[in-house]
Design a protein around this nucleic acid. Structure first.
Lengths: 241, 241
DNA sequence: GTAAATTCCAGGTATAGACCAGTTTCTGAG
DNA sequence: CTCAGAAACTGGTCTATACCTGGAATTTAC
């Protein structure tokens, strides 16, 4: 079950194994106690706790002192909003496989979509996003042409856009301002997400700027609320003095 | 420096001590090695690592294998209950007048609803929130009785609860974890928000803990999505070199 | 019968010690 | 003098052990 001849740390192997069993519904509500896991996998309690702590931080498990460790039944995908993450990163961290399908990629006059942040032409990229082959969201990215033209040379089905921006185009994503609300899905998009038209979606609107304050991206995402939750952890006094 | 006669766990004390020193610029770039910290504080390496790991997760420190642990010079922006949480403040900033109507205030057994967030009885406060006399949200706050009984002596139609908690009751709100998603409104609440039953609402779920990790509040808010948007400003966390 | 005490099992904290894996620095052979 | 290689750092992994606190069931006392 766990192989210590591999180079992979035991707590990582254990963590993955637990994650698979959770997804496979082998643990429905409660997972075995830490001491039981010690025996089951023949590792020390420290290793068990390290593996479990990882899954707790990822939001998959919830520990209750004196009772046990439980499977979190909230929607499977939770986006961590205290740092700027992409769909790809988020889905992957939840132990699922993210994929994309490119729907549209075209130039637009900035005023067509009433996008105040851009003045001239923009490139609009529309993608359908999947997690484990289930459609989760429709995302629309808008870029100034200077960025968009370089971006459109890549395979946007495979690549994660933010990696491309940062690593291939050398653009630094610095700050983002996001709005989250909910609305009725745009009629023609309902079939893509495999939900009835008239359903509600989570709407995310985002503007990203670089270090100099230039708008790098404007983004609109529509997410299935039964599959996606935004998660925010805040702590006081970190930057306050 | 560290007192093990207190009830506070050593790794928490150490973590706080390090956090203070980081903020006080006592560690400018690199913090002492784990083995040095062991000697400085007379604790085991496990304890040191636990304390450091916490600060790494919070984004204050960055570990580099073989080199050392460094102070993150771009700590993530973490908005507290400013734009994101305080209904009162948010509405006021939009130039509207926030008001409240107390719907319910009663004691409940804790066990029906939640897994282990509360152990004993709780006080539940249910309020209808208005902006310029239009109903916007229904909020439910749950408090342990020790807090709830003191809280219920105040006029909850007028006061903002978080001000009361901090300024009147002297309770320190330290960390909050929140989930934002969307769902169908609870049938009986639809008339309060003046929307058709079956409408979608923005759902916010939140747990706030104090410095020792005790749960101070559990909260559920249901917002009219046509009237309310959550705004979050984030900075990309750079975990590289 | 019911309430208090006991016991067991859960996670929480903490120690000491061993060894592994990158990185830098020192050192000695050529 | 150069530079390979050892030594001496760093964090990373892992074991074994001990005792604490919280929750719940069971036993015991009244």
């Amino acid at each position: 079950m766990i192989d210590d001849t591999l180079y992979i740390p035991l707590h990582v192997q254990l963590s993955k194994s637990l994650e698979e069993k959770i997804k496979a519904q082998e643990f429905i509500e409660k997972i075995p106690s830490e001491r039981e896991l010690m025996d089951m996998y023949s590792v020390s309690r420290t290793t068990v706790r390290e593996a479990v702590t990882k899954l707790v931080n990822d939001g998959l498990l919830i520990k209750v002192h004196g009772k046990g460790t439980y499977v979190n039944k909230k929607p499977p995908i939770q986006e961590w909003l205290s740092s700027l993450n992409s769909f790809t990163e988020t889905v992957r961290r939840m132990g699922m496989v993210p994929t994309s399908k490119l729907l549209t990629s075209k130039k637009l006059k900035a005023d067509e979509h009433k996008i105040g942040v851009f003045k001239e032409e923009v490139l609009m990229i529309e993608r359908l996003r999947y997690a484990d082959e289930k459609p989760i969201a429709i995302e629309r990215h808008y870029y100034p042409l200077s960025i968009g033209e370089r971006l459109s040379k890549f395979n946007l089905d495979k690549e994660t856009i933010y990696d491309l921006l940062e690593n291939e185009l050398g653009i630094v994503l610095d700050e983002a301002e996001q709005y989250i609300t909910s609305k009725i899905i745009e009629e023609h998009l309902a079939p893509y997400l495999e939900i009835p038209s008239g359903s509600n979606v989570l709407l995310v609107e985002r503007t990203i700027v670089d270090e100099k304050g230039n708008v790098v991206e404007y983004y609109i995402g529509q997410y299935r609320p039964d599959m996606y939750t935004f998660r925010i952890k805040t702590k006081r006094n970190i930057n306050k003095k």
